[in-house]
Amino acid sequence: MNDPLVVVILSTAVIAGTPLLFAALGEILAERSGVLNLGVEGMMLVGAVSGYIATLLTGNHWAGVLAALAAGGMMGMIHAFISVSLRGNQVVSGLALTIFGTGLSAFLGKSYIGQPVPDVFKPVTVPLFSQIPYLGKIFFEHDALVYLSYIFVIVIWVLVFKTRWGLNLRAVGENPAAADSMGIPVYLTRYISVVSGGMLAGLGGAYLSLAYAPTWLENMTAGRGWIAVALVIFAVWHPWKALVGSYIFGGVDALGFHIQAMGEKALFLKDVSPFFLQMLPYILTIIVLILVTSETKKRRVGTPAALGLPYDREER
């Protein structure tokens, strides 16, 4: 490998960040509509196992992607039903879904463990773009799902910030009562965003089982769903910042490993503990959390004011 080490590390960061990015984008959608989804980890696991099984049965990884989307969407539907229609506690429902998803994915995947994925997502070089020095190698020599994540970032950004539907979505997350009186269908909007959020989480899981470390192992997400939840705060509910955040969160591990592998060659960096590096994104998240707690800042960065609050038309 003749590429500068920085390029290699950043290229790894993009791959490591992609499952986080999918899940975080989904969580942004849900939270923008005012629904906190702590079931991301469970949704990712169910997505990972469904994608894996579907690919195994059909021999086509795109069938796996569809299955993961469907499975994640189903999980999202359960969450939406409990937290929107029944106005249940979003935290409890989310936690229950994570536990449920962990068990369900283990149950579904039991008989398939150890089988290699027949049709893995392989890196596809994007012509032209990959010719860009350094950036080409970092961003355009990956598999199709990574490119799909770029598209999703743009689409969701346009959707949330540049369309009427996005305006409605944010209104629902900000003040559902006001949105309701304006004739915006609050429940429908929340359903759509929570279900599509679940689909994206499922896709994030499938990225792990079909592209990143292609196989099914129980609990293979290893806490990435929770990282995604933290990431959304870090990204202050913004798709572009989620993209940057995912690569930072995903990249610190890669950076830590490279520093260790370089040994003496890493110069002053060799004294930096890899465990300190792994901690860094969370420290940043806490700092962001502190920064955005003041009311005025909240309004400016776009923390959904009605986040976590069930909406009841009769109680408004």
Binding site: T12, A16, A222
Partner: peptide, 14 residues
């Protein structure tokens, strides 16, 4: 699995 794969990649790079 994903993290351990990345660790191996850093060794391969070296």
């Amino acid at each position: 699995p994903a993290k351990e794969k990345d660790a191996a990649k850093s060794l391969l790079t070296q």
